[in-house]
């Protein structure tokens, strides 16, 4: 039931944010956020239900992974709304949330061959941190796309609905920076804890594991972006572009490894 309620809330939040952009009623903004918070509450309730049913954290299943990613996205949206008061972000985040909860809803349960002993402490640090880091990277990429769209509006002098409803370039840049740095530190914790877990579970770190190779490439790309920004400074447009490049490596890590390398 919580699955359906989470999907319903995310759909309603998406509907209200769209109406808000076209109609501009402030009440619609409040309703959007109520549905976003309810969506997070229901998806969390569903996550706890899965946890109780399987007597272990449901990260071992596609369902659990996508549900947690949807939760993390909702959480990042709420955090960024509190900080920047920009509803337009929801226009991009809510469809992803609907998609991820639906995948979680229709994907199978926990695979039968999951070894509960393998799921030690470090795995439970590794998976949530990696997923939360990915959610932050996703939002920074959304910020990057928004930056380019708004930048085009300003350059081409289009003063339509996108120009009015999208945040100022500087605000988008700040949002990208915030999500990029938080994402990077969270992802780093996730990667390190994953290495430690691999060492405990398999007795060694298999550096030829495709997942690890891609994850390290992703980490190198993001660390390059963050360190370059810190040391040399980067224009907002280049930062926006770098988030898109960075996220392509995240996609390769997850999708590429899962479907092409692992078969």
């Amino acid at each position: 039931m919580f699955f359906d309620l989470s999907i319903l809330c995310a759909v309603l939040a998406l509907l209200h944010v769209t109406l808000f952009i076209f109609m501009g009623y402030q009440r619609l903004a409040a309703i959007t956020n109520i549905f976003a918070v309810l969506g997070l509450v229901f998806s969390s309730a569903q996550f706890i239900t899965l946890w109780q049913t399987k007597h272990m954290l449901p990260f071992g299943s596609v369902s659990g992974l996508f549900l947690f990613l949807a939760q993390a996205l909702m959480l990042v949206y709420i955090m960024m709304y509190v900080k920047y008061r920009r509803l337009t972000l929801g226009l991009f985040i809510f469809p992803l949330t609907v998609l991820f909860v639906m995948i979680a809803r229709f994907a199978g349960g926990m695979p039968a061959n999951v070894n509960p002993h393998a799921a030690g402490f470090w795995l439970y640090i590794h998976l949530p941190f990696t997923i939360i880091g990915t959610a932050f990277f996703m939002v920074s990429t959304i910020g990057g796309i928004m930056y380019f769209v708004q930048e085009r509006q300003l350059k081409n002098k289009n003063f339509g609905i996108i120009f009015r409803s999208f945040p100022p370039l500087d605000t988008i840049d700040k949002l990208i920076n915030t999500t990029l740095y938080i994402g990077f530190y969270t992802f780093t914790i996730g990667l390190l804890s994953g290495l430690i877990w691999m060492m405990y579970a398999k007795g060694m770190i298999n550096i030829f594991s495709p997942k690890l190779v891609f994850a390290i490439i992703t980490w190198i790309i993001y660390s390059g972006i963050t360190f370059y920004k810190q040391i040399k400074g980067m224009s907002p447009k280049d930062t926006a572009l770098s988030t898109i490049v960075g996220f392509i490596s995240v996609l390769i890590t997850y999708v590429g490894v899962a479907f092409f390398v692992m078969g």
Binding site: G24, L154, F163, R164, P167, P168, L169, D170, T171, K174
Partner: peptide
């Protein structure tokens, strides 16, 4: 409502555009 938003004088519109870039 946004009745007071969106400036309708040239000089104020210029400043408003600046805030659309710089926040």
């Amino acid at each position: 409502t946004g009745i007071g938003e969106n400036p309708v004088s040239v000089s104020y519109a210029a400043v408003e555009l600046a805030t659309k870039i710089f926040g």
